[in-house]
Structures are given as structure tokens and as C-alpha cells.
Design a protein around this nucleic acid. Structure first.
Lengths: 330, 330
DNA sequence: CAGAGATTTCGAACCGGTTCGATTATGGAG
DNA sequence: CTCCATAATCGAACCGGTTCGAAATCTCTG
């Protein structure tokens, strides 16, 4: 494999001249620049990433910390990941993916060893054990998901409180006065999925204020259980005419349940990604969770901080994207 | 951030002694070793990855090349990825994820710059443009998916031919004499998804030999279209009593279609992952595609080649895991 | 044509590890 | 007490880039 020394020798210049010719950080005579470029091309020169990282303290790699349990229905995960990796590549960065059962250790390793210039954390829990590590790291960090303590990192998330209110408002506006909210399964909450109760509490509060009855329950994340659960629920609450679904599995299961029972009067509002809605042809209005957009925002802000000392000095942001209702396909 | 020089100074030894004490590659007196270890601990020393890579020409990072189009229903993707990253971590490697619309360029960059010690390629197409690059790379490569030309890399895949035969045999054994095979959408085939026609051609051949009529069609990968398509298909082939599904979206959609039509006599065999079967509570027998296991196998073989010169000299393997029928949940 | 000033190039140091060969300290045998 | 083998340690070189300061070359002016 050719080194910059080989390129320099082939072009008849010193290593430093070759380096400057390639980087353009100093002016180099037209002839020398051309010879260096030709030599690099001819030798198939690619700079050694380790050596460059050592010299510049920049790796052009972002860490991506994601927690995904096999056997859990998490259709949004690939979209988050794709949003992050695609944006990173656009900005010239590669992505080191850490799927972490081992938690903080791996994070500390990749930051302290300087493998990455910054870290995006997905699936942030309310009391996330990796956040202290991330705050202590020399690199900047960006989160997708709102933790209890936002200090020291940039945070991006859907405004789940607003989502809860928007969803209640919608069904209230359609005249419904008794509603059911199906949230994520309880273990998601126990694991620190704050977005679940942010949406739920805001929805309950809004319902109370509007004088609407709202039954909030945990759903299931698997198919047969999800269907049974919905059926039982509709039986138990015959007066409920509106359904709020903050649970992908429930949303995917609902059409077959309602079809089987002929519950055509039921009004439904969901909360999931546009892609999910399309894949499962869901006929409901929904609040779009825009996972790819959130991943993109996190990366852009992260790279801004990495590349500009000025940006690094700016105060940390907490950006909640507004929850907007998307109409069902007609 | 502490360097090995700081550790050495704190322990009162030279840098080389500190290095040997930490790596154990030469014997070091008990006292010195202890002082070095304590100093490293106290200073929170973590070796700089770039420097180590430069010195050892080993990065302890694997490249993971995956192609996933947002908006395509590819539920197995996360399982492949998880199989790879989890196994890599077990073996001491991190994973650089490259989701590549830009194809060969990114691969060449990460291999030539020595960012990775080896590469796992998912979603291999029959005539994959990245394979020549991978073969030319100085690092070993492993594929999940069978390409037209297997030279220069280790290959792991499900035995899709056997899967086709097993599926036909099953329905033939149940007494069915006219079958329909729903494959992946045509664009998957056009993109070089050889596994589609490997399964289909083997199934057609087996059906011919058994004297069974088999109608092979391309399916849809999206929900509303998949359902309509299945309905139309069953109408068009009223004599068909058995269904082979090599298409996740079709499998997920089928229960609601058959329920709506009361087609209880229909026998179905699928081809998808166990996780998929469970998530959607599919009541069919199926050939398990074991994405996580394939990812794991690819990584293990890759790391073997990376770490042992002996293994590197071994001939390349093409390992097709047997297609076995899993019974439906009772 | 000398000299100032700008342009181009080079050599050396540095980033932070690893590793080889040599040197020093230690202990045992003669 | 000396000599030698062995164990422990050190210094220096190297991996492959980048970058700084100085030297060399060229250009233009007086």
C-alpha cells in the first residue's frame, strides 16, 4: 500500500510538499502539484486513517449508540439508523455502530480511545446510565430522545406532550367523549422510555380539561397478544368511541380487529412514522414521529460542534419538533 | 487525556516498560507491573486507537456493508445487523456501518485507508459491483448471500434451492396438487436478488418432477398492494390449494385475506425468520432464514482469517445452511 | 545588479503507541 | 570473589501522516 512518502518520491518532492499539495493548505507550484496528484493517482494512494487521526486528532467517524433488543418490534430503528448514517456520510463522516448490552463500558472505550469525533445516542432513557459517561467524554454528544437531565449534550426529540394533546384534541373535535389510549408495553416504561408517559400524561391532562374520559393502558408489542388485548379492551369499554395508539404493534393489529368486529364507528389516531403508516396501509390520522429527520438533526448539530470551535461554545439545545397531525390516506 | 508516557512517568519506568507491563508480551518485575497498572488505573489511561492502529496495523474494527432502502419492508435487516455487531463485540471488534448508496467508493475508502481489519457484506447481489473491490482489498471479506462468483471471499447463505424443494415437498405431502409461489417483488430480482430465483427455480423443478402444478408470481412488498394482490391471485387460481410465500409482506398480509374469504382449507408454507413469525403470529409452517445466525457465522469466519495466518491460507468456503421446516405454533 | 519581498520547498518535530536490540541489575555456580 | 546466565529495563526506531519554521529560489524594484 502506497504511503505519502512513496507519492512524494514518485513526484520528486519532499513528504511535506506532497502533503500540502494534496491538502491545499499551502500554495504549491502548479508543476509540483500536478506531479503529486498524478503520482497519488497512479499509485492509488489513500491516506492511512490511523496515521491521520494521530496527527490531526480527528477521525471523521461518529459513534452511534443504539440499544435494540432482538425480538422486539421496533420498526423505527432502521429509520433512525439510516437517518444518522446517511447524514453522516453526506457530511464526510463514517459511523461506528455500537449496539450495546454492555452499556457505559463500550461508550467509554470508543470515546477515550479517540475512535470517534462525536457520539449520537438513540433510545435515550429517562435516567440513562450512559449519559454521565457521554458528558464526561472529550467529544460532543447528541441525543435522539429526551432524558431527565439534558445538560452537556444536544437533545432532539418529538414533542410528545404536544402529540398527546393533539391526539386528544382531534378525537374531541370529532365529538368523541370517551377515549382509550394504548401506550407501549409496560416494560418499555420500566426501561425508562419517558416518551411514553410524556404523551400519556399530557393526553390525560388535556382530556381532563376538555371533560373527556380517557382510559390509559399499556399495550403489547407482539402480534397475537396485541390483537387479543385490543379485543378485550374494546369489550371492556363499550362506551369508548375513540382510540389513541402510541404503540406500533397495536396500530398494525387494529385493522383486522375492527374488521372482525365491524366497529366502523371507531375513530383512531396513531403515533408512528410515515413509513410505518405506508407499509401497513394504516387508514388512521397520525402524529408522525419522523425518526429519520430526528437522526439527521442530531448529526448536523453534532458535526457543527465538532467542526467549529465557535459552535462548541454555544449553549446546548433541546429541540422538540412539533407534533403535527397527518391526515389518513383517503 | 493520559498517554502511555504519562503512565510510565507516574510509575517511574520507561514507555517501553509500561507498554510491556500492560500487554504482558515480555516479563516485567512484579513491582513495576503493579506500579504501571496502578498508574494506568489512576490516570484513567486508554490507549489511543489511531496510534495503536498505526503501530500494529490492526484496528479491531470490522466494516459492515449493508444496503437498505428506507421505505422498503425489510424486517430481517436489523437481525442481520445485530447478529454481526453482537458477534463482533464478543470477539473484541467494533463495527463500522456503511449504508451505501454510493457503492464501491465507500468500500474502497474504508479498506484502503486501513480503517477496518475485515469486511462483512450483507445483501449480496448476484453480480455485485462491490465484490471486485472487496477481492482487491488487502483485508479479508465475508458475505451473507450467495453471489454469482464466490472467489476470494467466504460466503454464507441459506440453501434457498433446498428451501424451495422442502416447501414444495411439504405441500405435496399434504396432498395438494396445485400450488402458488409468491416471490419477492420483481424489483428485488432486477436488483440481483439471486435468492429469489434460486428458491423459485428449485421449487418449479421439484414440482415438475412430482407432477404438481406450480404458479410462480412476483409479490408486492407493501401492505395494501400485497393484500389486493393475494386476493386477486386466489381468485384467478381457484384450483390452487397450497401457497408458498417467499415474501415477508405477503406472509404478514395473508391472515387477514384468508380470514376475510374464509379460505380455511388453504395450506401455507413460508420462508422468513423465527422472529418475524413470532412478531406477526403467523400460523404457518416455514423455512427459517436465520439472519442472525448467518451474520454470526460470517463474522466468526472473518475474524478467524484476520487473526490467524494459517486460517488466511485456507481455501475460501461457501457454506449454505440447510433449509429446515419449522412447524407452525399449535 | 543589489537587495527586499514574495513564493516555493524542505527538514525536522510531533502525534502515541509497539517492538527490537542492547544494556544494566540480579542471582547462582564455580 | 569472579564470571556467566538470566531477568528486567531502557533507548531508539518505526508506523504514516501533518505542520511549523527556516532555507532556497524567484520576481520585481530602485
Amino acid at each position: 500500500m502506497a504511503t505519502i512518502g512513496d507519492v512524494a518520491a514518485a513526484a520528486g518532492v519532499s513528504r511535506s510538499t506532497a502533503s500540502y499539495a494534496l491538502s491545499g493548505k499551502r500554495s504549491i507550484s502548479e508543476g509540483a502539484r500536478r506531479r503529486v496528484l498524478e503520482a497519488a493517482e497512479a499509485l492509488g494512494y489513500t491516506p492511512n486513517a490511523g496515521a491521520r487521526a494521530l496527527a490531526t486528532s480527528q477521525t471523521m467517524v461518529l459513534g452511534l449508540l443504539a440499544r435494540f433488543h432482538a425480538g422486539e418490534f421496533a420498526p423505527a430503528m432502521t429509520q433512525y439508523i439510516l437517518g444518522v448514517t446517511d447524514t453522516a456520510r453526506d457530511l464526510g463522516y463514517d459511523t461506528l455502530l455500537v449496539t450495546e448490552p454492555d452499556g457505559a463500558g463500550a461508550l467509554r472505550r470508543i470515546t477515550d480511545s479517540r475512535m470517534v469525533d462525536g457520539v449520537v445516542r438513540l433510545n435515550v432513557a429517562h435516567d440513562d446510565l450512559r449519559l454521565p459517561v457521554l458528558r464526561a467524554a472529550p467529544q460532543p454528544g447528541a441525543l435522539v430522545g429526551l432524558p431527565g437531565d439534558c445538560s452537556g449534550v444536544d437533545v432532539f426529540d418529538l414533542d410528545f406532550e404536544q402529540a398527546g394533546r393533539v391526539m386528544v384534541d382531534r378525537l374531541h373535535g370529532l365529538g368523541h367523549r370517551e377515549l382509550i389510549l394504548v401506550s407501549q408495553p409496560e416494560h418499555v416504561v420500566e426501561r425508562g422510555g419517558a416518551y411514553v408517559w410524556r404523551l400519556r400524561d399530557a393526553a390525560l391532562e388535556r382530556a381532563r380539561r376538555l371533560g373527556v374520559r380517557l382510559h390509559a393502558v399499556y399495550g403489547e408489542s407482539r402480534r397475537p397478544a396485541a390483537e387479543r388485548m385490543l379485543g378485550a379492551l374494546l369489550d371492556a369499554r363499550p362506551g369508548a368511541t375513540g382510540l389513541l395508539l402510541d404503540n406500533e404493534a397495536a396500530a398494525a393489529a387494529l385493522p383486522s380487529v375492527t374488521r372482525a368486529r365491524g366497529l366502523e364507528g371507531l375513530s383512531v389516531v396513531g403515533r408512528y412514522s410515515a413509513e410505518f403508516a405506508e407499509t401497513f396501509a394504516l387508514p388512521y390520522a397520525y402524529v408522525e414521529s419522523a425518526p429519520d429527520r430526528l437522526g439527521e438533526m442530531a448529526v448536523r448539530q453534532l458535526v457543527r460542534r465538532i467542526e467549529s470551535a465557535r459552535a462548541r461554545a454555544e449553549p446546548f439545545v433541546v429541540r422538540l419538533v412539533p407534533a403535527e397531525l397527518t391526515s389518513p390516506p383517503s
